[in-house]
Structure formats: C-alpha cells, structure tokens
Nucleic acid binder design. Sequence first.
DNA 1: CTGTATCCGTGCCGATACTG
DNA 2: CAGTATCGGCACGGATACAG
Lengths: 128, 128
Amino acid sequence: MAEPIKRLPKLPVERALKVIAGRWKPVILYYVFCGPKRLSELKRMMPEITQKVLIQQLREMEEHGLVRREVFAEVPARVEYTATELGLGLEPVLLALCQWGQRHAEAQNEIADIADCIVRPRKASFAA
Amino acid sequence: MAEPIKRLPKLPVERALKVIAGRWKPVILYYVFCGPKRLSELKRMMPEITQKVLIQQLREMEEHGLVRREVFAEVPARVEYTATELGLGLEPVLLALCQWGQRHAEAQNEIADIADCIVRPRKASFAA
DNA sequence: CTGTATCCGTGCCGATACTG
DNA sequence: CAGTATCGGCACGGATACAG
C-alpha cells in the first residue's frame, strides 16, 4: 500500500510523454493555463470527464509538479488548481504537438476538425 | 471483427500524443530519423524490445503515416523502414519534448540522466 | 463543494513458440 | 531474415455510490 511513488522513465522524451499523456491532461492544462481553476469549474468545462478521473489526473499532475493545489479555508471550502512554472513551460511543447496534429489530420484524411489550439498567449491570466 | 480502423482523437494535441506515445515509438523514430533501417538492425539497436512489439509499433506508425515500409525482392528478403515527410516533421516536436523532459528531471529530482537528445540535425541521412 | 472507495472492461505490452 | 499466433499481466480510465 501507499504508492511506491511510480518512477518516471529515464529518457527525457519518454519522461515528458509519460507526464502529459493522460487521457485528459492536455485539456485540463489548456484550461489551467488560462488561470487558477476550481474543481467545479473544471467539471463544468469538461462535462464528459468523471469527477474521480478528473481528480486523479490533477493529483498526478500535482505530484509531477505541473500544477499546484491550494486550499482556501472559507465557508464553503474552496480549492484552486494553478499551473506551476514547470507546467507553463509545457505551453510551447503542447503548441508544437497541436500544430503537428493539425498537419497530420490534414495529410491523413479528414478536415482539421476543432481547431483546438491548446495554448493561447499568456494574457488574461485569470478566469475566462 | 477486422479492425474498425481505430479512430484517432479529434483534438490535434490528443491526436499527436496518441500517435507518438507508444512505449518504444520515440526511440524507434530516433533511429529511423538517421536513415532507413532494417528490422534486424532495429532489433540489435534495442535489445530490450520484443520482436513482436517492435513490429507492432512499426505497423502502427506505418498506418499513421510516420514511416514507410519497403520490401526489396532480394535473395535473403530485405525490408527497410524509412521516415516519411510527415514523420520527419516530428523531429522538432520530439526535441521540444526531450528538452522539457530534461528540465523536468532536473527540477524534479535526480540528475539529467542519459542525455538522450532524440533528434540530431538532419545530417548523415543514412545508416549510422 | 471536494473528495474517497469499489468494481470492472479494455488496451497495451511482454514472453514464448512457431512459420515462410 | 521477417513475420504471425497465443496467452496473460497490469495499468488506465470509466461508472457508480458514498463521505467530510
């Protein structure tokens, strides 16, 4: 019991992939990059994800230093998830992935679909 | 039955991740980027990977248009795997992932480990 | 509102043996 | 040399119910 603290891969690329490749992580990061988000907000923004899984993914990203979890001792307990410096460093990387994904979608077959453009320039750093 | 031809995700980032995130894909790409490689070569270069899995990964990457498989009708049958244009477009992306992985390794805990530097500049485009 | 506990399908990967 | 067939483990994610 009590997580043996899963070791990350030694090779940098694999390490990076391991850390971002969760089913919902890119999307979560997309929102969190725009500013601190509460759990309930994230839930509303991604209606398809289960709460359990959402928290799971957040926990992992926290453990990997991508996001920071802050609890505010208020009346209705409030919790905010914020991107760390390390996490923000993923913006260009995710952007690159996104762009290549576009190229791939076009080259491969169907239309570009939802231009999701994961990362918007670091402006308006608080809630959308 | 008969592969429903697994749909790739609609969102570009997820699509890209899905395509690269195989257990051995980054490493395989690393070698293939340096020039066409035979199956036996790849096996020798990555002693840890199973032949079945190696072929599996190659098949998927072929299906996704990252590598091209060429059979040469020679006496001892020869097969070469080469990176496609689309595949080569991943070099900068993998490089970005690699670099961020380094930062992460340092920031997180242990030393930089094996500086794996997945992608080397497009030179010496044939066998190492 | 935020979070935990349980159960379970499925996908990915590995080991091993066999074939043209 | 290049490839297929089989079997099985295990992590991941999803559904659902419950708790502080």
